[in-house]
């Protein structure tokens, strides 16, 4: 934030500002997608359990909806985590490096993330095509609607990695990364 303010007048300031806006938009898209998926599955499964115990019958597709919505909940969460830079990593090396070396390392890390995301995206075509032929039994929805959550997640992570890469090149500060874990 402060780096962007300091460099507000230079062209690189524009890069930082745009990247912040795009990343915030991705963060919000993740929040909306994830909370909607989580809330819908919660309501449906709760109603299903209640129906089973009161009327003795359930909703058949309550056992299938996760096949579509859990991938989207995860994709939403993954994009938020990437936007906030809280993906689980081992951050020993950047902690012991000087500022210059750390800058190079962080550029390398963002590049590696970008490359892995792009290789997943580039190789996704055959699977996506095959999934257009697959239908969920009770919902009657094509599996490709679930698989496309992976495209959203990996494209989102790729965009964030690319923007972070540009931001560091444009002079964003490289404070020691936050340690995050979720065991």
């Amino acid at each position: 934030m402060s780096a962007a303010a300091r460099t507000g007048q230079r062209p690189s300031g524009l890069v930082l500002a745009i990247s912040q806006v795009v990343i915030l938009a991705l963060d919000w898209s993740g929040r909306v997608i994830a909370v909607a998926s989580l809330g819908f599955m919660f309501a449906l499964l709760l109603v299903n359990v209640v129906l089973r115990y009161t009327l003795g019958e359930g909703i058949a597709w309550a056992y299938e909806i996760h096949a579509l919505l859990l991938p989207w909940l995860v994709a939403g969460g993954v994009v938020i985590a990437a936007a906030r830079g809280v993906n689980i990593a081992i951050t020993l090396l950047p902690d012991v490096l000087g500022l210059g070396a750390r800058r190079v390392l962080i550029l390398a890390v963002h590049t590696a993330v970008l490359v892995t995301c792009l290789s997943v995206l580039a190789s996704s075509q055959p699977i996506l095509k095959a999934s257009t032929f697959q239908t969920l039994a009770t919902l009657g929805i094509k599996q490709v609607w679930g698989y496309s959550s992976l495209i959203y997640a990996f494209a989102g992570m790729a965009v964030i990695a690319a923007l972070e890469l540009l931001s560091v090149l444009a002079g964003k500060s490289v404070d020691p990364a936050d340690i995050s874990s979720f065991s």
């Binding site: 055959p126 699977i127 095509k129 095959a130 999934s131 032929f133 697959q134 599996q143």
Partner: peptide, 9 residues
């Protein structure tokens, strides 16, 4: 496995 077969995996 059907998806994988169609995709050549």
């Amino acid at each position: 496995m059907l998806t994988s077969a169609a995709a050549g995996v």
